[in-house]
Design a protein around this nucleic acid. Structure first.
Lengths: 212, 212
DNA sequence: CAATATCTGGAGGAATTTCCTCCACTTGTT
DNA sequence: AACAAGTGGAGGAAATTCCTCCAGATATTG
């Protein structure tokens, strides 16, 4: 949110309304929504939107930044406040589901790829979450709570799992149930089926998890 | 594929090329791709596409039909050829992942909703898969292989789980690993965490799983 | 191997959508 | 109260997308 410094109070408020509206609409309709619609949903004029975000990319970037910031906060809170690594991991994955990280990243990622300006601040933001995820994984496996045949890359895939809830069902509950099933599948245990292929490493992860 | 009867051989071939191209492009870029692009990918002229599919809906419908046909075939093969209900369920869910059912239905569903002409043949096609899924669920739970606190509706959510594989990773393998983790989470066992909320019923399922 | 019914490609004009600037007016700040 | 900062949305340019039409190519049949 560095860009929001030095703005007049009303301008800052509007900027946030725009980002929030963009996030919603990107989720609902994809990143190609007309920017005019974003402005309408945010309750501001189209001129205001263009002043703050010169082009679509700037808006995508802002949404990515907001989400990655939340993600990093989530990871940090989980690591700091939970009694052990496994519980931290649970909380983290549940939080990812709540953030709808999967839907968002599947929509944002492809568009952030090309114009990934080097030295992007998104990089650093992402790295904070990844570092913690690595730590949680190692530790939970060492503790014997997490099945040993997975890697952090696998967890990244699960972070961005996208539960397609048909309209009409209580989305939150559906997602929560699926998340718990997955968590049960992640637990170390005698009954665990060996996974095919090889564990996805942290490097795979770093190279690919783009936005959030 | 009833619509394909009575076409000249080359026309039928082209029709299938178009549906295949549409399926690919819908997955890659969403259902809003320019129809001209579909024609290009299929290697036919735009006129040909319009002759066979008067509007976008017809094409969506055809893709849905193709996918649901495959899905029903998958369910039937699984039920008929596997030694027990649990193995049938495994095979079925793995097949769904392979079909990329989740991505497709999350893209197709919203557009099939409004113009869901009553008495649609998609309905019947869908029903066949659902019936078998119900049977598999009941039976696998009775056999003590599937955790008892889930319903067929939950399985439907898992059928359409969308693994967002970042470009560059071997998609097939990633999906396979996630699928196995989920299957482990579905197994009945002493360690299973109780799920929040209530099991999603078969009715929830029937009412909402639209296309494929 | 004709003859003909069927099918094909893509040029191109109409219609729609989206973009984005510009400036008269409003609002926050000091 | 004064001014810097911010606002909205009309509207023209540009880009997309749609979809028809027909001269020519291709399968099929006897």
């Amino acid at each position: 949110m560095a860009e929001a410094q030095g703005l007049r109070a009303d301008a800052r408020r509007n900027r946030e309304l725009i980002v929030a509206a963009a996030r919603e609409l990107f989720l609902e309709q994809g990143v190609d929504v007309a920017l005019e619609e974003v402005a309408r949903r945010a309750g501001v004029g189209i001129g205001t939107l263009y002043r703050r975000f010169p082009d679509r990319d700037a808006l995508l970037h802002a949404v990515g930044e907001q989400t990655l910031t939340r993600l990093a906060g989530l990871a940090e809170a989980a690591w700091a406040e939970e009694p052990d690594a496994w519980h931290a991991l649970r909380r983290f994955l549940r939080g990812c589901a709540e953030l709808r990280l999967g839907e968002l990243s599947s929509k944002l990622d492809p568009h952030l790829h090309q114009p990934l300006r080097a030295g992007d601040d998104l990089r650093e933001l992402r790295q904070r979450s990844i570092d913690l995820l690595l730590r949680m994984t190692e530790r939970a496996q060492a503790d014997g709570h997490l099945r040993p045949d997975i890697g952090p890359g696998d967890l990244a895939l699960l972070m961005t799992l996208h539960v397609h809830t048909p309209p009409g069902l209580p989305a939150g509950e559906a997602v929560a149930r699926v998340t718990e099933i997955v968590l049960d599948g992640l637990r170390a245990g005698p009954g665990a089926t060996p996974l095919p292929g090889t564990a996805l490493s942290g490097d795979d992860l770093v190279r690919h998890t783009q936005s959030g």
